[in-house]
């Protein structure tokens, strides 16, 4: 099992809550490419690798009042918002690439993307380009029908096997 390191939980705790404002969340997403490029000591790559491992093993503790699946899906969306369209290595339930920005809407999309440049985050054009998305399509998706993925069949058994293999803690 990869334990949740202090660096990883600090990363989550610093940037991704949007109760009062989405500014930090948006900044984290827009900062990530530069952080990866200038990561001399490899610390941000380590956070990224750990992020992928926790998605793979469902080893993040469930969010307040949420199930493990909802929590996993929250982290998958953050992964997309921060690291881009490629699913985290080893993800047992990768999101189909075409879902993003059409039937699956993320926090970054809701807050930072708009069909008007004036209402869009400064970094959004670059963010969209890196993911092959078009602002108007994403903006339309925010207010139209989108689906979240239901918990897959056999997920409880999947979690039990991960727990038995010592890859996650039962919570």
């Amino acid at each position: 099992m990869i334990p949740r390191t202090k660096a990883f939980s600090r990363y989550i705790g610093t940037w991704f809550d949007t109760t009062d404002s989405a500014d930090m969340y948006i900044e984290a997403c827009e900062r990530a490419p530069k952080r990866l490029a200038e990561d001399a000591d490899g610390s941000f790559h380590a956070i990224r690798d750990e992020f992928a491992a926790h998605i793979r093993d469902s080893s993040n503790p469930p969010l307040r009042g949420s199930t493990q699946w909802v929590t996993d899906e929250w982290y998958r969306s953050i992964w997309y918002d921060v690291f881009g369209p490629e699913a985290p290595p080893g993800d047992p339930y990768p999101v189909p690439a075409e879902d993003w920005g059409s039937t699956r809407v993320t926090t970054y999309m809701i807050y930072a993307v708009n069909d008007e440049e004036e209402a869009m985050s400064d970094g959004a054009p670059e963010w969209l380009a890196a993911r092959g998305l078009v602002a108007e399509d994403v903006y339309d998706a925010i207010s139209s029908a989108t689906l979240r993925r239901p918990e897959p069949d056999g997920y409880a058994g999947h979690l039990r096997r991960l727990t038995e293999a010592g890859l996650r803690e039962e919570r």
Binding site: T18, T19, D20, S21, A22, D23, I26, Y111, A112, E116, E118, A119, M120, S121
Partner: peptide, 14 residues
């Protein structure tokens, strides 16, 4: 009537 803004509050304003 479209709202144009870059202020991005969440679900609580305190």
């Amino acid at each position: 009537g479209k709202v144009i803004s870059k202020h991005r509050p969440g679900a609580e304003a305190s």
